[in-house]
Amino acid sequence: MNAVANYNFAYLDEQTKRMIRRAILKAVAIPGYQVPFSSREMPMPYGWGTGGVQVTASIIGPDDVLKVIDQGADDTTNAVSIRAFFAKVAQVQTTTHTAEATIIQTRHRIPERKLEAGQILVYQVPIPEPLRFLEPRETETRKMHALEEYGLMHVKLYEDIARHGRIATTYAYPVKVEGRYVMDPSPTPKFDNPKMHRSEALQLFGAGREHRIYAVPPHTDVVSLDFEDHPFTIQHFEQPCALCGAEQVYLDEVILDDRGGHMYVCSDTDHCEERREAGHVGVLGMQEAAE
């Protein structure tokens, strides 16, 4: 034993973890329902994933392998610091490979690789209430959830079509979970909504500032809301990833110079790397190889 005080395993004290686990169990039992919990101060600012970190801290064990992504990337500040945080306070093994991870904490993206049974996806959620910008009163939105009054959600989609000619909501696209609760899938692009539907992995959502936890258990119906004459569609990209040539994946636009040059690359960096290692090459990847 050393004399220096140590953090408890995974930073949070055991009572807090129990409290959060109870909230998670309730959330899993009622898919899509926002369970209030007593969110703790974390050693990082709100907006950096305090909700997701608390969920991860409560479910992680010494044998878990953690992957953290931010906008699909493993190497951005937020992802690196959260990964380092758990490597320090829980001494767990970390990875960037989706297939090796048992817990994946994410902000904005669901990995391109299909998640498997036994994996847990933890979302960092800024605003858990899908009706918030339409109805500012919390008492009223709770009542609307309780009584399943979701007409207002379609008012938002109606406004989109009236203004833009199509449903212009591209992220945080509202979904109905197991035919009951309307849920905000956090700021993931709507491209990822179909991946939530009947996913084999457990999906947990933590909103630290708003003190809410909600969940989508494996094999649960997650249906994106739409109109009969304006059905839900996901984003389509004109060209494949410039580095690995992948199609049917979510791409980021990267500005290359100040003369309008840009390229589209996989938002999921791990997916892109794995494909390039397997020999797939995109347009710019070939030039790189030639140089």
Binding site: G151, L152, V155, A162, R163
Partner: peptide
């Protein structure tokens, strides 16, 4: 929200 959505809200609610 627009006038159209104001009128349509009750319809969407049912």
């Amino acid at each position: 929200v627009s006038a159209g959505a104001n009128v349509g809200e009750r319809l969407m609610a049912v």
